[in-house]
Each structure stands twice: as C-alpha cells, then as structure tokens.
C-alpha cells in the first residue's frame, strides 16, 4: 500500500515539475538544511545562549574565527555579552521558525473556519466576515500586527511581557494573516456548495456542520497549501520586523530579528558581524520560502501547464 503511494507520488505532475525546476530543488534543499539546523540546534550549538553561566565576558566582541583576533571556539564571533553568534543564530532560527509555523497554523485555522462558515451559510454571517476582512486587508499587515501586539502588552502586566512575548507574536501575526485563507476558502466553498454531492449529502440528512467538515473541507484545501507556504515567508519576516522594532522577542531569548536589532545598536563600533550573519540567515530563509511558494503556485495551477 505504502509502496504504491510512493510510486504514484514519483509519477505525479508535481514531482515532475519539481525535478524540472532548479529553483524549487535549490530552495527546498536550503530549507531542509535550515529546518534541520533549527530542530537540532541544541546538539549543533557549541553553547546554550540562554544560560548566562556559559558566557565568559572576556570573550565578548570577538570577530569571526577567520579574522585576526578571532577564536576557533567561536566560529562566527561573539556579541557584546560574549554570546557565541553561531549558537545564538541556531537558537534564533528555531524561535523564528516556531513563531512562523505557529502563526501560519493559527491564521489558517481561523481563515478556513471563517471562510467555510461564510461561504456555506451566506447571508449576514458571510457579509459580516467579509466586511471585517475587507477592512483588515486595507491596512498594511505590519500595522495590524503592531496594534494587536500593543493591545496585548497593555493588557498583560509588564513583568510578564518577556515570558508571553512568543504567544503575543503568534497571536499578532496569526490574527493579521487569516484574511487570505478566508477569502479563498469562501470562494471555493460557494462553488462546492452548489455541487451534487453536497445535495446528496443533504438529502441523506447529514447536518450542516457535517457537510462542511466531512464533505466540503477536503475539496477546498488545495489552494490553502500554496497560501500557507507563501504566508510562512511573510510570517517569519513579520516576526523579524517586530523583534527588530523591539516589540517582539526579548534580548534574553533572541530570535533572528532580535539579534539584528542588538547588532544594529553596535554598528558604529565596527562590530559588523553581529548584524550581518543573522541578516544573511533571515534573507536566505525568506527567499527560499518565497521561491518555493512561487514554484508551488505555478505547479498547482493547471492553467499554466
């Protein structure tokens, strides 16, 4: 059984298109490496950047090891707090990806639910959801995310800001990005609703929620995958931007954006490596996700074949 599935996968159009496109292959290879680095960060890192007892202040502001004054123990150099940059980037990548995936999951769950409800029920429910979506869409994502972030900070007591930061970020980014899913799912739901299999299910006495979840949902999920991929790049970028602006992950638990912010503060003392290396990792990550998303969109679009 598994064997035939595997062969069918190898024969599929998608796989053929994947082998033909070198951008898809390169970007997925890059992503595989980055995901691996994030998952195995505790084993790949040479020190735990969260553990202050492992930091030696004498080793602060060391340049990368291939530059004069560098120390082979610190491959990419250290920052002002003597944090090993290589380890900090691994852990930061991990945080950025966790926030990215979690907020995409939140946005997708929210968007799919609201899209299904709107498309299936129609009427005032649909109108209300789509009005909110329209208003949300007319504002830049970063502004909405900042606002949700600010409200969460206002509600939470200040001493909990650092601990809650990751949840606040996931919430802020997730609440910002659900509109695209909702619009797409709503559109396909309205088409599916008219089809005969839905009428058949209705005649058989399947309840509204049963039809939505068991029958319509599987048929509208295709485009969601593409949106989710492209959205991951956006989510990672939004997280980095918020952290860079100082309202994201705190300096004690730096994500890639926080590392760039810390590096930016010391740009003028000539310590360029603290800002450059996390930026490179961030740009490569976002670029790879975007290129893969572009490829997926084209490959799944039958009009382009």
């Amino acid at each position: 059984m598994a064997d035939t599935t595997f062969h069918r996968a190898l024969d599929s159009d998608l796989f053929w298109s994947f082998r033909k496109s070198w951008t898809a292959r390169v970007s997925s290879l890059v992503l595989l490496v980055l995901f691996g680095a994030a998952i195995f960060a505790p084993w790949l890192a040479t020190q735990n950047p969260y553990d202050i007892s492992q930091l030696f202040l004498l080793d602060s502001e060391l340049p990368p090891m291939w530059i004069d004054g560098g120390d082979p123990r610190y491959i990419l150099g250290t920052d002002q707090q003597a944090r090993d940059l290589y380890s900090a980037i691994l852990y930061g990548l991990r945080l950025s990806l966790v926030v990215g995936f979690a907020s995409v999951a939140l946005a997708a769950a929210l968007g799919i639910t609201l899209g299904l409800l709107g498309g299936f029920l129609g009427g005032i429910v649909d109108a209300a959801i789509m009005r909110v979506a329209d208003i949300l869409l007319s504002f830049p994502a970063i502004l909405v995310a900042l606002l949700v972030n600010g409200i969460a900070r206002g509600v939470l007591p200040p001493d909990q800001h650092a601990d809650a930061a990751i949840w606040v970020l996931i919430l802020a980014i997730g609440l910002t990005n659900w509109v695209q899913y909702a619009r797409t799912v709503r559109g396909s739901t309205m088409v599916e609703r008219q089809k005969e299999y839905v009428q058949a299910a209705r005649i058989n006495g399947v309840s509204g929620s049963g039809i939505m979840i068991q029958h319509i949902l599987p048929n509208v999920l295709g485009p969601v995958l593409v949106i989710a991929t492209i959205n991951l790049g956006m989510a990672v970028l939004t997280e980095a931007t918020l952290s860079f602006l100082g309202v994201g992950m705190p300096a004690t638990q730096p994500s890639l954006g926080t590392l760039i912010r810390i590096g930016n503060e010391y740009l003028f003392s000539g310590i360029w490596w603290v800002v450059i290396f996390p930026s490179v990792v961030l740009v490569v990550l976002v670029l790879a996700v975007n290129l893969l998303g572009d490829w997926l969109r084209d490959a799944l679009n039958p009009k382009l074949r």
Binding site: L237, A240, T241, F244, I260, N264, L267, V275, S279, L282, V283, V286, L287, N290
Partner: peptide, 11 residues
C-alpha cells in the same frame, strides 16, 4: 523585493 526593509536600511 526579497530583502527585508530593515536589513536594507542597516546595509
């Protein structure tokens, strides 16, 4: 289009 704006600024 791919560069995050704040990275452009820092560069």
């Amino acid at each position: 289009i791919s560069l995050p704006t704040f990275v452009t600024g820092i560069l």
